[in-house]
Structures are given as structure tokens and as C-alpha cells.
Design a protein around this nucleic acid. Structure first.
Length: 474
RNA sequence: GGCGCAUUCGUCUAGUGGUUAGGACGCUGGCCUCUCACGUCGGUAACAGGGGUUCAAUUCCCCUAUGCGCUACCA
């Protein structure tokens, strides 16, 4: 049984990189009928953010990504907050202590800083100098009663620690380069390195799919699995998501929170689709995938090794593609709140959908739908150039003729409007721009825009009459 | 500095021991059309460099360069 997990620290919002990691874990589990777990890594007490978990959960809900086990749905392997698993970690650290594969360290932060600074000055690497490793066990136990301490991993000497990464193949490190990592902090909380190994094992995680930034600390984790006598999960380290300058995707260079993209009018489906294609591809030219299709197609061996720039331009295009393809009724529903928020009265359903259908072709974000269709709601405003055009003699002739004709029918068909256009040309010798521009300007507020028949269709006879009258008065 | 990972158009990427190195975004030209948008048909642009191995390397190996990541009692 495949089991994957997404294990974020609750920093306040879901990062798009986190979304990609979560998505890959989700897809992999779904593809093989496995389980997907959400675990909150809240072991850093100094970085607690109010409401962060709720916000995270909410974002996943909006995206339609659901978990089989986690804070909301519970599960047999809980609790799913690391801060609630402290006794588990203490029990396990004792195992290590007993086996002498971990040891207490009483060094002060100042001393550690000093040692590090000295090594750095000599241009050497800066691991812990193992000052406390040789304290006799009985003495250490005494000291633990009276002094603050941390528990450190005891890294073996001069051997190669290697593991097979599902994305990168064999990766190996010299154990001398592996720091005696702190496993338990002075405050009694575990560090990430310790908690994630214990939890992944206890929760039955079979595949650890996470960002490449974890690759250098994986040997520490491998060591822990070994010390506990546990079997290694399969590791798969995902290529980083990058800023346009190819540094690790960060806040400084644009939006990084999923909720920000949602707020900007990106559809969840489009965002998911786009992010799925960052570091993974189906092996052919297809680019538009529903979540269901992705669940079918996803595979770890098609994951890319090198980092991927998060290209907002392409995201926009993809979002636009979704907007153009969505069933009109569905898009209209999605668009409704945007109109409401803008305080625009939604006309009868048929007209409303015509407006949405018109606007969808020229927007790439949902938030643009209001401005792109506001001309149907608001009377046109004219610039000095517009006024010049409207006041031209031929323009007046056309507008007057249309004002005479349009009110004659409550509803005009496309064919009838075309006829009217034709007869205008015949009767008054105006055609091309001299005909269309004044009409469009009067009805729509711009020389550029929809066909005249479409305009009359959406506006209706009454509104068209009002606008023609108004334009003639200018 | 140390360690690790990576390197195909500007970006996301396909691909193979012999290909006109393919697609998509962007940019751009044409068509459609009164216009704009949509659509559609084209164009643009890449195998980091140097050594090998081989009849033949973008593809396999080594080195260099470059980029990125990690180097906390943060995750």
C-alpha cells in the first residue's frame, strides 16, 4: 500500500512550491490507490502563526485536494500535529540514547557560535566539534538532571552513507561530512530531522516526496532509519521552483502564496494544472489536464531533475485557456460574485451569459471579467477624439437613421441587423469604418469591440435607443 | 569556504549513438474581419565549454565552467 504525506510547517499560507509538493504526493497516492496524509510540523515554538493551519486547510479545500488522514479527518496514526506527539519523540530518543547512537550535548550557544566562527575564519566546513560526545554516560545522566542540554545524532566515522533517490538515482555522502545534528532541542521539542523520520516510519509512509532543499540532510535521516533498524522509505527529491532570476522561489519577487493567486482570479484547476507541469511532464505534447487525468498519468520517473522557473506569463495563458473552455453556465456561476462585489446589477440570465461569453474571450484572469464587460452596464464616456467622430456629418446621419429604425422592433435578429447595416450603406453611401465606428462608439463607447449585431443583441432595443439618443446629443 | 544537485530555444519541456533537434508560453508575420478579441496558418530561438569512447556524439565517460541548494537548538 502506497502512502505519501505532505508535511508543512504552519507558516501562515500555502506556498506554491508547497502546493507542487503536495500535488505530486497526492497524485502519486491517488494513482496507486494509496493514502495521502497531512501532518503539521509545528515543532518550532518561536514560529507559531495564529490561524495558519486553518488557512492552510482552507486553501486545500478551495483547490479540491483532500487528505485521507490529517488534522481534520483524523486517522489511526495520529495525532497529526507534531506538537502533540512529544511523548512519542521522547520515547524514541531514549532508544537512541540507550544504544549510544545519540548523546546529550551541554554546549552553550555562545560556545557553538565561537567554534563555528573560528572554523569559518580558517575557511573550513563548520560541523559541531563533538565536544560532548565523550562525556561518560553515567556522568551525562547526572548532568542532564541539572543542566540544559540537547540530544545530538552520533554520526559514524569515515563511511559512505548512500541512498537511492527516485528522481536522481544513487546519491552518496561521506559520513565525516554529516554533522552531529541536534535531534532534541533544549525546550524538549524535536527538530525536523528527528520528528520527520519517527513520524514517517510510525505513520507508514512509503514514499517521501519533498523539495530538493532536503537532499543534503537526507543522509542524517538515513542514519536515523538505520539506528532504529527501520526500512528506508523511497525518497524522491523534487526540483526547486525558481524565480525568474533562477534563485529559489521567494516572496521578494512576486506572489508566492496560493491564496494570492486565487484572489487574483486564477482558477484552482488552472493553477493545479500549471504547477503539475513544473518539473513533470506526460512525455508528449499535451498540456491541459484535469486533476482526474493527472491522477492517471502521473509517474515519478517522469519528474525532471533541474529547477523550473515559475513563469507567470504561461500561467496566465493557461488560466485564459481554461476560461475559454469552461461550460458557459459554469463560468457564469464563477463570475457572479465578481459582478456582485463590483456592485453591478446582473441582468436577466440570458443577457448575463451573453456578456460573460463575450468577456471570456478577452480575459486571462477572473478578476478582469468585470472591467471587460462594464461597457454593457455603464453608459459610454467619450474622449475629445470620440466626440469629433460622433459629430461628423456622416456619423450623425448614420446614428439618426439607426435611432429611427432600432426602436421599431423589440428584438432584432442578427440577420435583421445585417440588413439594416446594408441598407444604411445603400441609402447614405457610408460604409466601413465610417459606418461601424460611430455606431460602435455610440453603443459601446469604443471604436473597437464586438460586432454590431452582437452589441444590439446584448444591449436590447431599449438600451440601444438610449445610447443612440445620447450619442446624437453630444 | 565545505558538501551536494543540476545544465536542450528567453521560459516550461520532448527526444535519440546517425533527427530538417519536436511541442507550448512569449515575441513576431499572414489569414479571418469594419475594428478589437478569439481562432487559424507561419516565423523567431537551444543541445554550457573542453577532452575522450565510437565509423558517428546533443545522447555514454571524465574534467572545467556556470547556476542553484544545504551548511541553525528553522522547517
Amino acid at each position: 500500500m502506497i502512502k505519501t504525506r505532505f508535511a508543512p510547517s504552519p507558516t501562515g499560507y500555502l506556498h506554491v512550491g508547497g502546493l507542487r509538493t503536495a500535488l505530486f504526493n497526492y497524485l502519486f497516492a491517488r494513482k496507486y490507490g494509496g493514502q495521502f496524509v497531512l501532518r503539521i510540523e509545528d515543532t518550532d515554538q518561536s514560529r507559531q502563526v495564529e490561524g495558519a493551519v486553518e488557512n492552510l486547510l482552507n486553501t486545500f479545500t478551495r483547490l479540491g485536494i483532500d487528505f485521507d488522514e490529517g488534522p481534520t479527518q483524523g486517522g489511526e496514526k495520529g495525532p497529526y500535529f507534531q506538537s502533540q506527539r512529544l511523548d512519542i519523540y521522547h520515547k524514541h530518543i531514549q532508544l537512541l540514547l540507550d544504544a549510544n547512537t545519540a548523546y546529550p550535548c551541554f554546549c552553550s550557544e555562545d560556545r557553538l557560535k565561537e567554534v563555528r566562527a573560528k572554523r569559518q575564519a580558517e575557511k573550513l566546513n563548520t560541523p559541531y566539534d563533538r565536544h560532548c560526545v565523550s562525556i561518560p554516560q553515567n556522568l551525562a545522566i547526572e548532568m542532564m538532571k541539572s543542566q540544559p542540554y540537547v540530544i545530538r545524532l552520533k554520526s559514524p566515522e569515515s563511511e559512505t552513507v548512500s541512498f537511492k533517490d527516485a528522481v536522481r538515482g544513487e546519491v552518496s555522502f561521506n559520513s565525516d561530512e554529516i554533522d552531529d545534528q541536534v535531534l532534541m532541542k533544549t525546550d524538549g521539542f524535536p527538530t525536523y530531522h528527528f520528528a520527520n523520520v519517527v513520524d514517517d516510519h510510525l505513520m507508514g509512509i512509503t514514499h517521501v516526496i519533498r523539495g530538493e532543499e532536503w537532499l543534503p540532510s537526507t543522509p542524517k535521516h538515513v542514519l536515523l532509519y538505520r539506528y532504529f533498524g527501520w526500512t528506508l522509505p523511497t525518497f524522491a527529491h523534487l526540483p526547486l521552483l525558481l524565480n525568474p532570476d533562477r534563485s529559489k522561489l521567494s516572496k521578494r519577487q512576486g506572489d508566492v502564496a496560493v491564496e494570492d493567486y486565487l484572489a487574483k482570479g486564477y482558477l484552482p484547476e488552472a493553477l493545479l494544472n500549471f504547477v503539475a507541469l513544473l518539473g513533470w511532464n506526460p512525455g508528449d505534447d499535451r498540456e491541459i489536464f484535469s486533476i482526474a487525468q493527472l491522477e492517471q498519468e502521473f509517474s515519478i520517473d517522469r519528474i525532471q531533475k533541474s529547477g523550473a522557473v515559475f513563469d507567470v506569463e504561461k500561467l496566465k495563458w493557461m488560466n485564459g485557456a481554461y476560461l475559454k473552455d469552461l461550460p458557459l453556465e459554469k463560468l457564469s456561476e464563477i463570475a457572479r460574485p465578481y459582478f456582485k462585489d463590483a456592485g453591478l446589477e446582473i441582468p436577466d440570465e440570458t443577457t448575463y451569459q451573453k456578456i460573460v461569453d463575450f468577456a471570456r474571450k478577452r480575459i486571462s484572469l477572473m478578476t478582469e471579467i468585470v472591467s471587460e464587460s462594464s461597457m454593457f452596464y455603464q453608459l459610454p464616456e467619450f474622449s475629445p477624439e470620440d466626440l469629433d467622430l460622433l459629430r461628423k456629418k456622416s456619423s450623425k446621419t448614420v446614428l439618426q437613421y439607426w435611432l429611427d429604425q432600432v426602436p421599431r422592433k423589440p428584438v432584432w435578429t442578427e440577420g435583421e441587423i445585417k440588413e439594416l447595416l446594408k441598407s444604411t450603406t445603400q441609402d447614405f453611401q457610408v460604409k466601413g469604418r465610417d459606418l461601424y465606428f460611430p455606431l460602435r462608439l455610440a453603443l459601446y463607447g469604443s471604436c473597437h469591440g464586438p460586432d454590431i449585431p452582437a452589441l444590439i443583441d446584448i444591449l436590447g432595443t431599449d438600451e440601444a435607443t438610449v445610447r443612440l439618443t445620447r450619442a446624437l446629443q453630444k
